[in-house]
Amino acid sequence: MIITAIAGVVILLFYFIPRSPFDRIGEVFQNWVIIVAAFAIILGVGSLVKVNGEKISRLSQGWGYSVVLLVGLFTTALIGIIGGIEEGSAFDFIFKYFFTPMGSTMFSLLAFFIASAAFRAFRAKTFEAGLLLASAFLVMLGRVPIGDYIWHKFPEIASWIMDFPNTAGQRAIMIGASLGVVSTSIKFLLGIDKSYLGGE
């Protein structure tokens, strides 16, 4: 808690002092965070090995996935350490042809989930949900060529909805959230809130 308070106050103070070396203190602290996080990865890998190792040793349900995970983890790390990570290396091959497509597969799910979530959100059960449905319908119609073809004002209506009510709503949330961030930071710095450390 003392470390949090000192680090926070120092960064806050030096934010207002523009001369070197004070203006670079934030960068220095950021580098420290990177170094600490790099060492913390050992804890993460340790947790992965422990949890999945136990699963394999007990032959728990789905232990085969744990084998794949650990083999993938150590094989990739070893190939990277021994063969390097340059373009054209075996590590690069794994990255391009295993890692990237798998990530893209997960990301592509988003298209289907947007459709299913929108279907539920747009059920006009209440007056507010009806407003949401009407505005969403107008924005969608205004953003596709057929909307312009039906009535040339649809794109303008869509832009107005996005530029005014939508922007205003977003700003209101952002102002509230920003004040919340400042207030929470002050609570952490003054030691009023210790709950993130497990305390009251």
């Binding site: 979530a117 539920r120 949330i173 509230g176 959230a177 919340g180 929470t184």
Partner: peptide
């Protein structure tokens, strides 16, 4: 908001404590 039963919006997350 669309997919969850309850959502803490912005500042509500920070007010939780």
């Amino acid at each position: 908001v669309a997919a969850c039963d309850y959502t803490l919006i912005g500042e509500e997350l920070f007010a939780a404590s």
